[in-house]
Structure formats: structure tokens, C-alpha cells
Design a protein around this nucleic acid. Sequence first.
DNA 1: TGGCAAAATTGCCAACATGGCAACTTTGTG
DNA 2: CACAAAGTTGCCATGTTGGCAATTTTGCCA
Lengths: 214, 214
Amino acid sequence: MGANVEITAGLRERKRRETRAALSLAALRLCVQRGWDNVTVDDIAAVANVSPRTFRNYFSTRAEAVAAGHLERMLRVADELRTRPASEPLWTAVTNSVAAQFERPARKGQALDADRWLERTRFIITEPSIHGEVLKASATAQVELAEVIAGRVGARRVKDPYPQVAAAVVTAVVGTVVDRWLRDGPTGSIMPLLRKAFELVAAGFPQDKVKTGK
Amino acid sequence: MGANVEITAGLRERKRRETRAALSLAALRLCVQRGWDNVTVDDIAAVANVSPRTFRNYFSTRAEAVAAGHLERMLRVADELRTRPASEPLWTAVTNSVAAQFERPARKGQALDADRWLERTRFIITEPSIHGEVLKASATAQVELAEVIAGRVGARRVKDPYPQVAAAVVTAVVGTVVDRWLRDGPTGSIMPLLRKAFELVAAGFPQDKVKTGK
DNA sequence: TGGCAAAATTGCCAACATGGCAACTTTGTG
DNA sequence: CACAAAGTTGCCATGTTGGCAATTTTGCCA
């Protein structure tokens, strides 16, 4: 359970997801374009072609709507991790799973997409008004992440703190690295930063003579 | 700079802090007592003896007011860490600093205080409506924590990811441990849980044969 | 000490957000 | 094809949020 919730469709469920996605996207688009303070629920609902009241059936706040994309993304990290070969060391697998969700979508032709992706990611991570919601979304996804990790390392006994703590660390590292990456002009790939950070984690944050790489 | 902001007083500043504290406390008290949904800004302002408009000069949302206590607490963790002997290993120092802020206040006589402290802590960590704000508060304090850690391990070079990542990990571990502690009937001290979690961190989350303690 | 500029408090208020309720539509199924 | 379940919408009462300007308090110095 929990793996691929998307398998089961059913027109009803599908439309629901579409509406939700449309609202979330509309919210993000408008906020990036006009700025957080210049977007109302009515605006979002209008763009998504539903009534303002319906918006509220899907999200209780604008912030939640905007952060929904981030939630999805973090859930995809967990999903990605699930598909990684068990032979891979945990932190390697995690690094790759995260990177897969935070690399620019250079795939489909247009470089325009990459720009917009960056613009949106930056907005989500940067805008103070939604920071709380974003962190909350991460925390939500973290639950699933913990389950995946538990399955991966083999839950030793109930109440083994390992999975929970490891998942929390992953969330923390991702937050820190993405933040840093965005600030220091996100020119290159985020991979090096991610790798370095998880190397630190894997090494237990050595305090002594140990030099960090080169 | 940053160490003890409280040294400098000035009547003005002092009163400001008092008012802020009074509002925050009033908010927390009322919310614990009546439940999140049954408390309005007006109620809080009334208890704190200021106008509702003044409340808004200090906090922009109820959630922020309630989470203010948590922010202070996390800042105290950073302050505490600053006073720890540099000889102490980082994770030991951190464990102690955190524990100092999350142990029940068994000091001053009344066991009543301990109960109320637990009740409030539980509310802050548990109530979904403020979860985002609490996480945000942690993130805010995390900045200071990173500075302290940087000073402690000796910031190698600018952009050294160590302090930021380590601080993020501390925040993550604290969140996870406190959560777990509260759920599993917070009968005893939180220390063992903290210690175990930071041992995991220090060990870099071993995946192989290594048995975790006893 | 008296007086004043800066800071804080407050009232007023318009625009939004939030969520309960009930009417009305759409969807999937037997 | 009829119908129960699920989804959408309008209506609306309460609260929230923050700008503006009037009023009061505070700290300081001549």
C-alpha cells in the first residue's frame, strides 16, 4: 500500500486530481506573476474555471494550494527512492532520488520550461508567506519517506528511531541544499551540493582533522 | 553580537518584550484551554490587556503568537550551545543544549508547572493549525544555530555547507524526537531518545551489521 | 523640570479568508 | 434508466489582515 496510488483511476478520482492540480497550478502561476499579495482566491478560481467556493473544497488556504506542488514533489522523492535497487547505499540512493526531482527539466525541448521551473521553484522556496506551508508539506511527505527508508534498511524493531530520524535528516538536507543552491545563482546542477551534503551526513559530521573532500 | 540580546534593556524595549510575551502566553493559554478554533484575536488581546489592533502590531497571525514560545525555546537551544565548552564533541553539546530546553521544569516546587508545561508543549507540537508556524519558527532559530555551530567547528571557508547542514539536522532531530517522545507517553526524560538519535547521526546512519547500542 | 520628538497604542474600516449549510448537478452502477 | 453517492455552487455569518490617522506614552535633554 502506498506505492502507486495513481494506478487506480476511476473517472471521478481522475477529475478530482485534475481539478486539484489545475487549482494548484493556477495559484502558483498567478502568484509568481503578480506577487503573493496581489492574488485572491477568486482570481485563482477564475483561472481554474471553478467557483471560489470549490477552491475551498480542495484547499483551505492559498498557501496550501501553492505548496501542493512541493508536496507532490517530495512524495515523488519517496516514490523514486522506493524504486532504487536495494544494493545502493542509502545516502547514494537518496541523493539520486532527490536530484531526480530537483534537476531542471531540460528534457522536452523548450528552455523556456527550465526557466519557468526555476522561477516557480524559487518562488515556492523563497516567498515568506508560504514558507510555513512548504515546511508542512515536507513534513507530510516525510512520513512516507520514513516508511520507505524503514523498508529499505529493514525495520529492526518497532519504535526503532532510525527511519524517522533518517527521513527527517533527508528533509532537512534537501531544504538546506535547495535553499543554498537557489541563493548562489543556480547556474549548474544541484547534484554536487547534494552529494557533498549527504557525504557529510554519511560521515557523521566529522569535527576533527578530516578535510572535506578537496 | 547575537549572544545575549537581553542585556541591553531600556524601558521601552523591555515593555515591548513584556507585551509580546504576555500576548504570546495569553494566546497559548487560551488555545490550550478552549481549543484552537474557539479563540479569537479579540479574546487574546482582552486577556493581555491591549487592543486587538495592538495584538496585530506584534503578531500577524494567531499561529505566530502561539508559536512564538517555540521560537524562543529554539533560540535558547542555540544560546545554550554557545556556552558549552568547546572541548565537548558537537553532538554531545547539542544533545545537552536541547535537553536543557525540553526537560520538564521540575525545579520550582509545584508539579503543576510540569503538567502545564507538558500540556503546552504538546499543544504546540500537536495542533495541526500551527504546525506550519512552528516549523517556520524552528527554521528561523536554525539560522542562529548555524552561526553557533560555525563558530564551534571553525568555519572552514565561506560557503562551507557544514554549519548549515548540521544545524538543519539538529532541527530535524529535535522535531522528530520531541514528536516521538510526546506520542509514546512522555513519562520519563527525553534524554535517552535524544541521545540515541544523535548517536545515529554521529555514526552516519550505519546500514550494515552494526547493532544500535544494546 | 518642562517640553518635545520618537515610538507605541488604538479606533476605524475595507478587502479577504474561512467554512457551514443547503440546493443543485454530475457520475457510476445495478 | 433511475438513483444514490459525490461534486459543485451560492449564500452568508464570523474572523482575519493590514493601511491610515488620531491619540497617548516614553525617553531624553536643554
